[in-house]
Design a protein around this nucleic acid. Structure first.
Lengths: 345, 345
DNA sequence: CTGAAAGCGCTTACAG
DNA sequence: CTGAAAGCGCTTACAG
């Protein structure tokens, strides 16, 4: 029972005995073009009967829109990256769906590919706007997009003209560190992604502030920059190398996300450290697995879905030409205490 | 330095002193319309100079395409579902990118919303085709789509006309069960999603076959159907209720995916079972966290990215009107032995 | 070898 | 209140 060729607005017009302009007006509730109640009713009925729905591409061409926003997310490494991105997808999807937009995943393996993809998105008008993650210093994506395609950054940038949605990462790391200090820790390690990422910079700053305010020294040798990005494997190697390097081991470690923390747990076990007795561990994100690790992971919850929801909502407003104020939103974080930090016995 | 209004094919034609048809022919390497080498060169140069790239929506309207395929994936529960879907997104993305297509996420909270979404996709021609996951018996999505929009199912269906890409789930569960039997287990529990899903049906069948062939009884009381879908929380409750229900506990448990297995580990710990000494655990999927659990999880690796890659590739062929043979692909699975099954001491 | 014209399916001034 | 026409930016027969 295949339905025959697609119903177009012309078919509806013909059957209803009106012009296509009238059909369009009725469907768009376009009251700049008044339509009598009777005509309106008739059109609606025919629309119903024929199952007519305007084609998105046709509307798009006419209106100069794609009704699509792009999410530029890393696909590497394999096995896959932080669950953070998946929460973000869900949040962005919520916002786009509410406004009748669609979401397209712009996946890339490395920064070069990401830039090429964004360039293509601009020149072929593949999407109406993009959401960018994890900005770095002198981020080449920003000048590429600026003035060419609306975009919102999940994270922080130096440029005040750019729309951003971010956590207060300084505060988040500070709270986690203070929690460890309150538990008596003085040698707290920090496993972080490269400092060129603002997120890493901000969190190290929060960690530093907490130490300073508690009168504890900020020791560079307790920091490890991972080789790569997120992931348990990466965290494992980073923390292992730290444990092997230090003469006096740390009594606690802060990891920049839960997958890295998972790797820390593994490295600690391998080196004979009991968590939390010999070593307290705190991660970030409150990923799905974190409550179910052994021991369950204390973590700073990042509301990635909320973050992405606001970002997508903001982006859609920009696309539709609304005035968007404020241009920078900060979403709070939350320390979730479980067993891995030793506060619960 | 905003670039001025978008460059169109007309601009290129004007500057190059040719017609738009010629520009289009050159760009599409459309040799049904011969263009002299000289003209061709000139056009290409102007294209380069002006930075012209054809707009995707315009091409799409003309060709009756969106250059978009949809991935219908569940967004619930929160915290999010099995990492399986994320691997699948990566795989599908790879295939679409290779052919210059884009991928759109059709996210839904429940089956009703999924149907509405698919209906919309059909009537508004939002995408050129869709990828469907986890088919059930009398799946209402199939008749909705059939004849209206190309689609490929990741999983199995009863209808031989439908294109599918699936694991050999019977075989996969059989191998895992046989592995446990070889380790001496006789009472093997199975935590599975509802049997209306073919995946669950097939895996229970493989489990049954392994038992039968080993001369062991298939005991219904050792099966637990989870309330819901995937996730550690869900697995925890299901397995806990099983442990509380049984007089004689199982010595091993097979869980339908690693998130459910994670929940089993937790329930086991709570009930005082040591894994793997008192209880062997095997999951499915080889999710990113599985190698890093305590103990690391033995699991049947499902190549979700490969699965989705093939499915997307198949879908793209269907969309482009190619003859696609065969219509059903089976991707092998692989047992990955780690500590949780007790085979490694 | 190249161009003029039609048309994909819509929406939007504009005229009546 | 309603319709005829233009046009979004392309591609594709068709004519010359």
């Amino acid at each position: 029972m295949k339905s025959k060729a697609t119903v177009t607005i012309r078919d509806v017009a013909k059957v209803a005995g009106v012009s296509v302009a009238t059909v369009s007006s009725v469907l768009n509730e376009n009251y700049h073009t008044r339509v009598s109640a009777e005509t309106r009713k008739r059109v609606l009925q025919v629309v119903q009967e024929l199952g007519y729905r305007p084609r998105r591409v046709a509307q798009g061409l006419r209106k100069g829109m794609t009704y699509l926003i792009g999410l530029a997310i890393p696909l590497q490494p394999d096995p896959p990256l932080s669950p953070f991105f998946y929460d973000a997808v869900a949040g962005a999807l919520k916002a786009t769906k509410e406004k009748g937009w669609m979401l397209s995943i712009l996946g890339f393996k490395d920064r070069t590919e990401e830039l090429a993809l964004l360039q293509k998105a601009v020149s072929q008008r593949l999407v109406d706007g993009v959401l960018l993650f994890d900005p770095q210093e002198n981020d080449p994506r920003l000048p590429l997009l600026k003035g060419n395609l609306p975009f919102v950054v999940l994270g922080r940038t130096d440029d005040p003209e750019i729309y951003t949605v971010d956590n207060d990462n300084v505060e988040a790391a500070k709270l986690a560190t203070q929690h460890l200090i309150r538990l008596g820790h003085k040698r707290i390690a920090f496993v972080h992604i490269p400092l060129s990422y603002f997120t890493a910079k901000d969190r190290v700053e929060g960690y530093r502030q907490a130490l300073m305010e508690a009168g504890l020294p900020f020791r560079k040798e307790l920091l490890v920059e991972v080789k790569g990005y997120y992931g348990a494997e990466v965290g494992y190697h980073a923390f292992l190398s730290l444990l092997e390097r230090l003469k006096e081991p740390p009594t606690a470690v802060l990891a920049m996300d839960d997958t890295l923390a998972l790797g820390c747990l593994q490295a600690a076990a391998e080196k004979g450290f009991k968590v939390p007795d010999d070593l307290a561990v705190i991660g970030f994100n409150d990923s799905a697995f974190s409550a179910h690790c052994e021991p369950p992971l204390t973590t700073v919850r990042i509301f990635a879905d909320t973050l992405a929801f606001y970002a997508a909502d903001m982006l859609l407003r920009l696309i539709q030409g609304e005035v968007v104020i404020p241009s920078r939103i900060t979403v709070p974080t939350q320390l979730i205490v479980r067993k891995s930090c030793g506060a619960m016995r």
